[in-house]
Design a binder for these strands. Structure first.
Lengths: 132, 132
DNA sequence: AAGAATGATACCATGTTAGTCTCATTTGTC
DNA sequence: GACAAATGAGACTAACATGGTATCATTCTT
């Protein structure tokens, strides 16, 4: 029952490093030696951040990554959704089917409320707030 | 990222049924035909509830299960912990080791706060509050 | 003694997570 | 233009978690 998984975690570490060296283009190699994250794994993560428009990438010698937007515009929730899908604490399945009592289920109702709270809190966390 | 998994879900359904038929001893067979949950799976769940002191069991013909304590004394959190372990939204591992920045990590700090909120809300939910 | 129930526990299939590997493409430098 | 350094794309794999099954032992009622 983890809120963030390893991809998201690594993405955050990478982003923090990139923001601490703003203006410089950071290559995967830089990040690997700095963060000690497995190279191939990290590369996949960087590619995804690029596709999502959170990083800009530059190919070829001297290439690497730059932030595509300011740190206070990158929400933790966006990262979580990028790597783990929509935040949903109350998916309810009954024998592989979506539960037939969806609308009337008291438990679901209560979990929904908790989910909304969590989401609200998560939305207040940006990459800036993680830069120490 | 689910707050409750299938074991917990089934446990709740079973408990609700048992409480709605208080005083009667309910067998696994009763529950299977009522709730349409796979027999063996349900039996494992009932056994666990028994071991945890949430149900009392009776062997032999006419045997089955009874609630071991009142519905308002059974917290949803207890069920979650029985089947899924301690609620912990912020486990942080770094390359299989516990993360070395545990104490200084800003993210961990924020997730901790969210976890405390969730836990507080979860503790307010008892089986009574799920009996409709 | 028989049958109906739970207790204990091993097993299995599928999906998810974390990580690896390879090849193609782009770009800067000599 | 050749080469090296970088990213892009995507297939592959090992280990673990989840959901579910199966079997045999034990206990209790009749």
């Amino acid at each position: 029952m983890k809120l963030i998984n390893r991809d998201t975690d690594y993405a955050i570490r990478a982003l923090c490093y990139i923001f601490k060296h703003k203006k410089k283009v950071i290559s995967a190699s830089d990040l690997v030696s700095e963060l000690r994250i497995p190279r191939s794994f990290l590369r996949k993560i960087l590619q995804k951040l690029n596709k999502k428009g959170i990083l800009k990438s530059f190919k070829g010698q001297g290439g690497g990554f730059l932030a595509a937007k300011p740190a206070d515009k990158i929400l933790l929730v966006d990262l979580i959704e990028t790597f783990q899908g929509k935040v949903s604490l109350n998916e309810c399945f009954f024998r592989k089917l979506t539960c037939p009592h969806k609308r009337t289920c008291v438990l679901r109702d209560k979990l929904d409320k908790i989910e909304k709270q969590v989401l609200k809190e998560l939305k207040r966390i940006t990459v800036v707030s993680l830069l120490r």
